[in-house]
Amino acid sequence: MNQNIWVLMTGDSVALATTLILAALGALFTERTGVLNLGVEGVLLTAAISSFIAADSSGSVWVGLIVGSLAGALLAGIHAILAVVLRANQIVSGLALVIFGTGLANYLGKPYEGKTISVKLTDMTFGPLTDIPLLGPILFEQDIITYVALAAAVFSSLYLFRTRPGLEVRATGDDPATVDAQGLMVSTIRIRYTLFGGLLMGLGGSWLMLAESAAWHQAATTNGVGWIALALVVFASWRPIRLVLGAVLFGFTLQLPYTLQAENITFIPQAFLQMVPYVATLISLIALSRPGSTNALGAPKSLGVPFVRDER
């Protein structure tokens, strides 16, 4: 293989990883407070079409990114109300969000089917740095949101493990009763980070639309990235830095079929290449599992369990 294809493959992996990092970080914050939001796929789709419509009608990618992120937070807000306030079954609520979000996105996207967007998020260049062979195009020729996503992961790690509010987040997910006894409002913290998580997912979905796809293809726009993001959080044992590594790895498998096809390498049937990311995720999930306890992975201890204070 020549050098170009390697640049293409790794560069695209880093780029594709952006959505994964943002969506998975969103899920990570949500889950760290003990709320399981399985609705990522629906949130991504709704955010994607919202950003499409906003960017296309305003002519600005930034408006698109903001509107898309807010749409993500809004949808996550539904989950927050059901899961935190009304103590509904979080799994079913998340699934309902996927169905609702997919329907909503397809409904809103109907007039835009097959149309390409008029504006696009462009790659940044860093002059001489970009010209470095091999490394330059991989590291210094991405768009701004990719760098934002990487920075967000680093900051998230510092925030969660080095600050007081971060400690509160982790404590809420592990032991809400103690947090409550400390006089903090468990439900407020959970709602806040579910919304924040939705905002990050929304940014990820908008980026997917504005930088990667540029056209609305209904559910194929995300093609299961939301589910891979959820698996990625488990894969990363709820740690932001590991999450970035995993995202680049999964990003690599996601772009593989397209790059190989573009390079006319066709001895492996396309369908099997398309399976690679899902099978790879599946195998890594199984490999990380241990018999007996799921806590070996580092899952927040009250994940998916509504907090009920003993009320007098």
């Binding site: 995720t281 999930l285 199984i286």
Partner: peptide
């Protein structure tokens, strides 16, 4: 192994 069936069954759909 206790692997979450939620994610595994979903991945196999794709």
């Amino acid at each position: 192994l206790g692997t979450s069936e939620i994610v595994t069954t979903l991945l196999l759909t794709y």
